[in-house]
Amino acid sequence: MELSNRDKAEAIQNSIETETLAEIGLISPTSYKQHNPNVATGLQAILGLHDLMPMDKVYTNVVRKFQDGDYGFVHVDYFLFEPTVAFDIHRFENGISVEHWDNLQTNPKKLNKSGRTMTDGKTKAKDHHKT
C-alpha cells in the first residue's frame, strides 16, 4: 500500500530519531532542496546533522499531519538540539520529497498565558467538506 504524502512527511520526520532517513528512501538523493537557511541542501547534509545532535536525547512526536496535493506537512514536538516545536512541509515528486521547509521554535515546555501549550488541542481534522 502506497503511503499518503502526510504519512511520508511523518515518516521522514520520525526518521530523525531512528536515524533511518537513508534507509526509508523518501528523500531524493539528487535533487532535495532545503529551505532552512541553517541547513545545507541535499540528503547528505541532512544525514550529517545526526553527527551534531545529542542523539541520546533526540525524540520526535508528530502531533498532527496533513496533506494538500503534492505537499505533506506535520506539526512536530521534537528534541533536536533543544526542546523544539515545528511545522515541517515536504513537496513530493514521484513519491519522494524534493523540497523541505520548516518553521522551528524553542518549546518552553510550560503553559502560556492562555493556559495552552504549543501542541495541545485537537489533533484530527473534521468536517473536511468545510475546508
Rank of each mutant, 00 (worst) to 15 (best):
V58E: 01
V62G: 06
V62Q: 03
L104E: 06
Y71A: 02
K8H: 11
E17S: 13
E99C: 07
T60C: 09
L3N: 15
R64L: 03
Q34W: 12
T131P: 00
G72C: 07
K109T: 10
G42H: 10
V98G: 05
R6N: 14
D102S: 07
R6W: 01
T106W: 00
D56K: 08
Q67R: 01
D77I: 01
K110P: 09
H90N: 08
S31E: 14
A40C: 09
V58G: 01
R64N: 08
M55S: 06
A125V: 14
M53W: 07
I24G: 12
D56L: 02
K122V: 13
Y59P: 02
Q105R: 04
P29Q: 00
Y78R: 05
V85Y: 02
T18D: 15
Y32M: 00
F87N: 05
S114A: 09
D88M: 02
E19F: 12
D120P: 11
Y78T: 08
R6S: 15
A9F: 06
T131I: 15
V98H: 02
T84V: 08
L43W: 10
K124Y: 12
N107M: 03
G69C: 01
V62W: 01
V39K: 07
L47S: 10
K113Y: 01
I16H: 09
K33D: 12
Q105H: 05
N112Q: 05
T106Y: 03
D127S: 13
K33C: 04
Y78D: 11
L47W: 09
T123S: 12
A45R: 05
A40I: 03
Q67F: 01
P54Q: 05
M1E: 04
G48S: 11
N14F: 14
K57W: 01
I12K: 14
P29K: 02
Y71T: 02
T30N: 11
V62A: 04
P108F: 06
G69T: 02
F87V: 11
D51M: 01
G42L: 05
P108K: 04
S4I: 00
P108S: 11
D88G: 04
H129C: 09
E2V: 12
L21I: 14
I46R: 08
L26T: 12
A22C: 02
I16K: 06
E93I: 04
N14H: 15
A45S: 11
K124N: 14
E23P: 03
S28H: 07
A22N: 10
V76K: 03
M53A: 05
L52M: 07
F79R: 01
V74H: 02
N61V: 06
D51A: 10
T117L: 09
H50Q: 07
K65Q: 08
Q13L: 13
V85S: 08
L21F: 13
H75M: 04
V63Y: 04
I27V: 13
M53G: 02
Y78W: 11
V76W: 00
N14P: 07
H90F: 14
H90G: 00
T106D: 00
D51G: 13
